[in-house]
């Protein structure tokens, strides 16, 4: 593996870790000292150099190992990747979006050359070279969505738009925070969001859906979501709950700094041009508590967010049980000083 990428695991011996550089660019999701659901969407425009927003699809030091983990999940459970027949065109739209973005943003790692519909794709980090015919699925080893998302960090879902609603009808989901594509596939926007507490009554899903139905090609948007994960597991799926759920009960004051992770999802939404579908990449970033507290502002703020979060949210996100342990660990880092607005370290 080249120097650019870590050789690490997200299961078994859990050797995943963030470098100093990765900690510095971590997408800390709290712009203020408290958290509640909101329609938090902003244009997905390029951010500062080095930040996770610099490019359309962030490729970081965990890339190669994350892709190895995905291949393992798929080998164990092929239903993590599904696409209803009418979603193939959206899959091609997604493949084009990702290939063009990566080749433009990371020319030293990826290249795409086109001669009409004859395309030539090179992915150097994963040592893949592929000549294929665009829009002809028989020329790729997998369907277009599966092909490209086996080479791209983050989960992906594709939503068809019809009858003034969005329908989740394709996806590659191996790094999820406890929800299941196999269960949700075919559902509409409010159906698949049904388990979320409070947000429905707050009108958040009404407003978000109304906005998304009008999302324009060429004007993607982004939002954050977050939860808590014990041990650096990418795959916290309901299907595998018996494998990872019990881990939550064995954390101690001695191990929490190392085992407890803040899990942040950078979610983006893209209107796709040919299919008129919406692509929803969900990119997961993990950071250990002991890594996070090296940034004083983040440590202070996380303490306040966890302390004041409504029980409904802590329960839904699955950390109510460990909340006292978290507060005990984080409290010493909260000196009561004010924190500056915004996400930045200081």
């Amino acid at each position: 593996m080249s120097l650019d990428f870590n050789d690490e695991t997200f299961r078994g011996d859990f050797t995943f870790k963030n470098s100093a550089k990765a900690i510095k660019r971590f997408p800390f999701p709290f712009p203020e000292d408290s958290y509640m659901y909101s329609v938090n969407m902003e244009p997905h425009v390029p951010g500062p150099v080095g930040s996770v927003f610099e490019h359309m699809f962030d490729v970081d030091e965990h890339y190669v190992s994350e892709m190895r983990d995905r291949a393992q999940v798929l080998a164990d459970d092929p239903l993590r990747c599904q696409s209803l027949p009418h979603m193939e065109l959206a899959g091609w739209d997604l493949l084009e979006l990702i290939m063009e973005s990566k080749a433009r943003d990371y020319p030293h790692w990826f290249s795409l050359t086109k001669d009409g519909n004859q395309w030539h794709w090179v992915n150097r980090p994963l040592q893949i070279e592929q000549k294929f015919t665009f829009l002809d699925a028989s020329t790729l080893p997998y369907g277009p969505m599966e092909y490209i998302t086996r080479q791209t960090q983050g989960d992906f879902t594709l939503q068809d738009q019809r009858d003034d609603d969005l329908w989740i009808e394709a996806g590659m989901v191996t790094t999820q925070a406890d929800w299941s594509l196999d269960f949700d596939i075919g559902m509409s926007f409010k159906q698949w969001h049904a388990p979320v507490p409070l947000a429905h009554q707050m009108g958040i899903f009404d407003r978000a859906l109304k906005f998304l139905l009008k999302l324009q090609h060429g004007a993607p948007v982004r939002r954050f979501n977050w939860t808590m994960t014990v041990d650096p597991l990418l795959d916290t799926s309901p299907e595998n709950y018996p494998k990872w759920g019990p881990g939550k009960t064995t954390m101690t004051p001695q191990t929490i700094g190392h085992r407890q992770h803040l899990r942040v999802e950078l979610q983006t939404l893209h209107r796709l041009p040919r299919s008129n579908a919406i692509a929803f990449p969900i990119r997961c970033y993990l950071i250990r508590f002991e890594e996070l507290v090296t940034v004083p502002k983040w440590a202070r703020r996380l303490h306040r967010v966890v302390r004041d979060i409504p029980d409904e949210l802590a329960t839904y996100k699955g950390f109510l049980r460990n909340k006292p342990l978290m507060l005990e660990y984080l409290a010493p880092f909260d000196d009561g000083q004010p924190t500056s607005p915004g996400f930045a370290p200081e």
């Binding site: 329609v39 969407m41 902003e42 244009p43 906005f211 009008k214 999302l215 324009q216 090609h217 060429g218 004007a219 948007v221």
Partner: peptide, 8 residues
């Protein structure tokens, strides 16, 4: 949240 696709 404005719809800000670039013009052509």
């Amino acid at each position: 949240m404005s719809v800000g696709a670039p013009k052509i």
